[in-house]
Simulated scan of single mutants.
Amino acid sequence: MSTSLINTEIKPFNATAFHAGKFVPVSDADLKGKWSVVFFYPADFTFVCPTELGDLADNYAEFQKLGVEIYSVSTDTHFTHKAWHDSSETIGKINYPMIGDPTGVITRNFGVMIEEAGLAERGTFVIDPQGKIQIIEINAGGIGRDAAELLRKVKAAQYVASHPGEVCPAKWKEGEATLAPSLDLVGKI
């Protein structure tokens, strides 16, 4: 990615997701007004992907308590998502929307398309209620992500958004001290 997407507004899209046993429309408008995580992965019926999506499913209630919706996205169709959901015990426990992006529009909008393969990178995007990207993480294909670490980062993003003038230091966890950047702190940390 040549330019950072941090603090940029998400681009318009319309797609179909498999969610709660149905095919439902999802658009960029659905991501606005609340915190969202858009979780790209290469493909259904693969190896690392189900471990990541299952980990998110196991932590989904915690994200929901924070008012966060999760959207998983791959370049598979919503039909393929349903078939995977119906055939895999791990994927069967998913309660968040699984967006199909067979045209790659959403994947390209977020800059994570592997053009020669037609697949998405392992990209994670945290989007604030204004529709602006606050966190970006992209992993190589063989490196799985951790939902608990993502949850910590979302809490930090929400804290900073609701406490102007404060920042969260490395390894910050909810309830721990934050920093208020000032001239007095320069060289003291």
Rank of each mutant, 00 (worst) to 15 (best):
F125V: 09
Q130C: 02
L150M: 15
Q134E: 12
N139Q: 13
F125G: 04
I135R: 05
L150R: 03
G141K: 08
I133R: 08
K153A: 14
E149I: 05
A147L: 08
G123D: 05
I133L: 12
K132V: 01
E137N: 15
D146M: 05
P129W: 10
I136Y: 05
G142R: 07
I136M: 13
D128N: 15
R152V: 04
A147G: 03
T124N: 09
I143Y: 10
D128T: 09
A147E: 04
L151W: 10
K153N: 13
G141D: 09
G141V: 07
L151N: 05
I138M: 07
V126A: 10
R145E: 04
I138H: 08
Q130P: 00
K132H: 12
P129Q: 10
E137Q: 15
I138D: 02
L150D: 02
Q134N: 11
Q134V: 08
I136E: 14
P129F: 11
D128K: 04
D128V: 06
N139T: 04
K132T: 13
R145V: 03
G123S: 10
A147F: 04
G123M: 01
I135N: 00
D128P: 05
N139V: 02
T124D: 05
R152L: 08
E137G: 10
R145L: 04
I138E: 07
G123I: 01
L151F: 09
E149P: 05
A147V: 02
I127W: 01
P129L: 11
I136Q: 14
I127Y: 01
L150V: 06
I136N: 06
L150Q: 03
I136D: 02
E137Y: 14
K153F: 11
G123L: 08
E137S: 15
G142N: 13
Q134R: 15
E149S: 10
I127E: 00
N139I: 00
F125D: 04
K132N: 09
G123P: 04
I133Q: 12
I133S: 12
V126T: 07
E149A: 14
I135K: 07
A147W: 01
D128S: 12
N139A: 12
I133Y: 10
P129K: 09
P129D: 04
G131V: 11
A140G: 14
F125K: 04
K153P: 00
Q134I: 07
R145G: 09
D146W: 04
D146L: 01
A140R: 15
L151C: 06
L150C: 00
G131Y: 06
R152I: 06
F125L: 10
G141N: 08
G123K: 00
G141Y: 07
K153H: 09
Q134F: 06
E149M: 06
I127V: 14
I133K: 10
G141A: 13
D146V: 08
L151K: 05
T124C: 03
A148I: 09
I143N: 09
G131Q: 09
D146Y: 09
L151P: 03
K153Q: 14
G144L: 04
